[in-house]
Design a protein around this nucleic acid. Structure first.
Length: 882
RNA sequence: GCCGGGAUGGCGGAAUCGGUAGACGCAGCGGAUUCAAAAUCCGCCGCCGCAAGGUGUGGGGGUUCGAGUCCCCCUCCCGGCACCA
């Protein structure tokens, strides 16, 4: 078939031609079209914007290809599609780069954006670039500041103290990431906890809505909704107080003589054998005054981590205060302890301890020899204090050794006890795990918090007409604190109220603020007069949001919260920003590191090391190629700049083209699944595209002329081979459309391979053959086009199917092509596959049974025994039980 | 530690409702083409077995005519844990 010279597949030529066409025709510019909402519904397809870390990695390629496939598919289905792109441009890595290379974060960030934008363009994503934004632009972040001020007015934003990691040597606040084994990443100094003032957003005011509205999110994965619900953590319990007579020096009762606690297990109240308070609790402070050992312990608690994971895994320790509190029901004196596992920030910073029925209390009691008192019985289970058993914590038991409450179930006992505690101020209470959102960061590269501190007027909001408070872009952080502190031109300002000399706030906002509303800003791109406008009402909510599972809780919860705030302020009409969510699995790669002499961690790229493997091929260690010395293998982890394990797609694009990179990424696995990076198989993807190219060009050269202008296939009598070919093509198409509907793109890719396999084996003689092949090829190109838009764009035109595949309708399988006269059923005997049976497609159950029992395979394996039962699964199989 | 998810050939993965395990690829093996190689094409390819057959979806148990799929227990891996984004 190679008599005529077929042009070779040249990805570079094909891809630049396709992109030129899209650019010239402004193919992806999205225009609001509210009048045609019924005929041409909008489809807002959004992928999480990247942090401009330097280069794209394969996780980005996966994320944005998924979004692009969905965008292009919906476009072919007749939707008015918006797919924007921007940059989550503030953040810590820019400061780290500045520390390392003395480059201003602004320059580093903008250079990275330029490089990564060009990479995104090279991948051929159908993005409306006219809406591009970067969160470090004053035109964007002024609206962070503006909405922050509105929240302040409404009491949603407020100021209180926050706990931070403090590096005593660098005299600076550290991010959790910068604390390694309790020490500062650069100084190696023991990190201290420090209380400093900061601004908070009252996300807990929306806790109920954030929880309840999860039920409306039908397009979200269950696992994400479960994680969010658990994070919000609504628990119903009882808040009550242990009485005491502990007084400070002035003789005043501390806390009015009440030690407040919250418990979800009030039914175990008769099993309380001690109480524990946080190190920061006023009673702990009081007890430590004349107790040096306790004071030292409290001091020790103030070091150490602020991270929940560390709190949960650390050794539970405590010291008695020597004080006692009074059990509210028994009047018994209960010893009071200080425990390092009690959090001041959760509830009242104090817990009642029931060692018999709480695993943590049990461990603590065993360690310090405190009494354990069983008050819940579950069936006949025998209780011993030797070791913790799972049932001790069960809510399915009844009270015992609890006086009048004996025999009551969990909920009945909680109710009765709450009633009995009521006259002492106890009450049933809903407690949330969710905490308010601390947004102050003691960092330079972020959005300035628009507050001015005046000696006379206090904290004064910056007036709207002075927004934005612009961040100076020429600072170079050196790791020893926020450089804004030394920028007099930034700090010194007149108080907006009294005009006296005043100081600007130097804290900046958490970058999660930036990403909490960018989706709304894309819609109203370019509006300098308002945060959002009517265009946002047209596009919102996002119809399909795509991003990594790593954002399942924080980013998505903050965005949902921010949306509700904007709605309540009348800025938008939408309370849930993302109608449908696809959480992409992480793309993993090997992580190698070494500890530095200061106790920090230095990471090495996989290409810089030689792995050491055991007999099973597992990596156990590695050496650095540069010096031959060992490095640690840290396992697999998400590709990231900071761990230096990202794989840049550039080499792939340069060698094989964007279509191959996109196809390979989609083919590798279903989108939600974690993917360990491995480029074996890229060649196979490329080989497939070369075959598609050659086949289509062969069709142009040999068959196209024989294909009639109007299809004659529907209802036509085809030769068996052609009918079977056409059936297979339409069957694969049907499957591919189904798979696209469930967002399983790997099988869409393999479906396109199956179509090509079928087409290549097809008979090529006669008009009908040419027509079936032409139909199949046009289906193949359209199914493949969302994944490989460049090659399919060029081939669509070359094959004469039309000018622009973007405007081609998604192909529909012809049901008439799928019908069969005869089908094959699997034959099992006692559940084991023993053969198969061909029967008429409409054969009756009795007839099938008879045919099955008479078959040679059945006779052989039934060994003369009578059939006890015959199971017939229509269209599938027969199972003879004997 | 807690919350969420995952584990299927040498590798990536497929199997829509409990009904043919391994689609489609990669790697490998054999062959064709070639002076040779690359590229391309054809065939084979879970494991054990000459075969008949047996066996097999991380491990252990259960439900069922039938389990990768449902239930219970366990192991390992990944994501999150509020200042990485």
């Amino acid at each position: 078939m190679q008599e005529k010279q077929i042009p070779a597949y040249s990805p570079a030529e094909v891809e630049s031609a396709a992109r030129r066409y899209w650019d010239d025709s402004q193919a992806f510019k999205a225009v609001e079209d509210p009048g045609a909402a019924a005929a041409r519904p909008k489809y807002y397809c959004l992928s999480m914007f990247p942090y401009p870390s330097g280069k794209l990695h394969m996780g980005h390629v996966r994320n944005y290809t998924i979004g692009d496939v969905l965008s292009r598919y919906h476009r072919m289905r007749g939707f008015n599609v918006l797919q924007p792109m921007g940059w989550d441009a503030f953040g810590l890595p820019a400061e780290n780069a500045a520390i390392k290379n003395a480059v201003p974060p602004a320059k580093w960030t903008y250079d990275n954006i330029d490089y990564m934008r060009q990479q995104l363009k090279a991948l051929g994503f159908a993005i409306d670039w006219s809406r591009e934004l970067a969160t470090c632009q004053p035109s964007y972040y002024r609206w962070n500041q503006w909405l922050f001020l509105r929240m302040l007015e409404k009491g949603i934003a407020y100021k209180k103290t926050q706990t931070v990691n403090w590096d005593p040597v660098d005299q600076t606040v550290l991010a959790n990431e910068q604390v390694i084994d309790g020490r500062g990443w650069r100084t190696g100094a023991l990190v201290e906890k420090r209380e400093i003032p900061g601004y908070y957003l009252g996300i807990t005011q929306y806790a109920d809505q954030l929880l309840d509205d999860l039920d409306t999110l039908d397009g979200w994965p269950e696992r994400v909704k479960t994680m969010q619900a658990n994070w919000i953590g609504k628990s119903t319990g009882v808040r009550f107080a242990f009485g005491h007579d502990i007084r400070d020096e002035s003789g005043a009762l501390i806390g009015d003589g009440k030690l407040w606690v919250f418990t979800t297990r009030a039914d175990t109240i008769m099993g309380v054998t001690f109480c524990a308070v946080a190190a920061e609790h006023p009673l702990a402070t009081h007890a430590a005054r004349d107790n040096p050992e306790l004071a030292a312990f409290i001091e020790k608690c103030k070091h150490g981590s602020v991270m929940e994971a560390d709190m949960a895994t650390m050794e539970k320790e405590g010291l008695p205060t020597g004080l006692t509190v009074v059990h509210p029901l028994t009047g018994e004196a209960v010893p009071l302890w200080v425990g390092n596992y009690v959090l001041m920030s959760y509830g009242d910073g104090a817990v009642m301890a029931v060692p018999a029925h709480d695993e943590r209390d049990f461990g603590f009691a065993k360690k310090y020899g405190l009494p354990v008192r069983q008050v819940i019985a579950v069936g006949d289970n025998a209780f011993t204090t030797d070791a913790w058993a799972e049932w001790y914590g069960s809510k399915d038991g009844v009270c015992m050794a609890s006086g009048k409450y004996d025999g009551l179930t969990h909920s009945a006992a909680v109710d009765a006890i709450a009633t009995d505690l009521a006259d002492k101020g106890g009450e049933k209470k809903v407690q949330w795990r969710l905490r308010d959102w601390g947004v102050s960061r003691q960092r330079y590269w972020g959005c300035p918090i628009p507050i001015i501190h005046c000696d006379h007027c206090g904290d004064v909001p910056v007036p709207d007409d002075q927004l934005p408070v612009v961040l100076p872009e020429d600072c170079i952080p050196d790791g020893s604190g926020n450089p804004l502190l030394t920028r007099d031109d930034f700090i010194n300002v007149a108080c907006p109220k009294c005009g006296a000399a005043a100081k600007r706030e130097t804290d900046t906002m958490d970058t999660f603020v930036d990403s909490s509303w960018y989706y709304a800003r894309y819609c109203s791109a370019g509006n300098d007069g308002a945060m959002v406008d009517a265009r946002t009402d047209y596009w919102m909510p996002v119809d399909q949001y795509i991003g990594g599972i790593e954002h399942a809780i924080l980013h998505l919860l903050y965005s949902r919260f921010w949306s509700k705030v904007m709605r309540d302020m009348g800025l938008t009409t939408v309370g849930e920003p993302f109608a449908r969510l696809l959480t992409q699995g992480m793309v993993l790669n090997h992580i190698y590191s070494r500890r530095t002499d200061k106790g920090g961690i230095e990471y090495y790229a996989p290409e810089e090391i030689t792995p050491i493997r055991d007999d099973a091929g597992r990596i156990t260690g590695a050496t650095l190629i540069a010096d031959g010395q060992p490095v640690d293998f840290q396992g697999m982890g998400t590709m990231s700049k900071s761990k230096r394990n990202g794989v840049d797609p550039q080499a792939l694009i340069d060698t094989y083209g964007a279509d191959t990179a996109r196809f390979f990424m989609m083919f590798a696995s279903p989108p939600e699944q974690t993917l360990e990076w491995n480029d074996a198989g890229v060649e196979g993807a490329h080989r497939f595209l070369k075959r598609v190219w050659a086949f289509a060009q062969g069709y142009v050269a040999e068959l196209r002329a024989a294909v009639p202008a109007a299809s004659t296939l529907e209802g036509a009598k085809l030769p068996v081979a052609l009918a079977e070919l056409r059936r297979e093509l339409h069957l694969v198409l049907k499957q591919a459309s189904y798979d696209l509907g469930k967002q399983q793109f790997n099988t869409v890719a393999s479906g396109s391979m199956k179509m090509l396999n079928a087409l290549e084996k097809a008979p090529r003689e006669g008009r009908q053959a040419a027509e079936v092949i032409g139909e199949g090829l046009s289906m193949l190109l359209r199914v493949l086009s969302p994944i490989c838009p460049h090659i399919t764009h060029v081939l669509w035109r070359d094959c004469g199917f039309g000018d622009d595949i973007l405007r081609a309708p998604w192909p529909e399988p012809a049901e008439s092509a799928l019908v069969q006269d005869e089908i094959e059923l699997m034959l099992q005997v006692n559940g084991k596959l023993r053969g198969s049976l061909r029967v008429a497609a409409d054969a009756a159950k009795d007839a099938i049974e008879a045919q099955a029992l008479a078959s040679e395979a059945a006779q052989k394996f039934m060994e003369g025994k009578p059939a006890k039962k015959v199971v017939v699964v229509p269209g599938r199989l027969i199972n003879i039980v004997c």
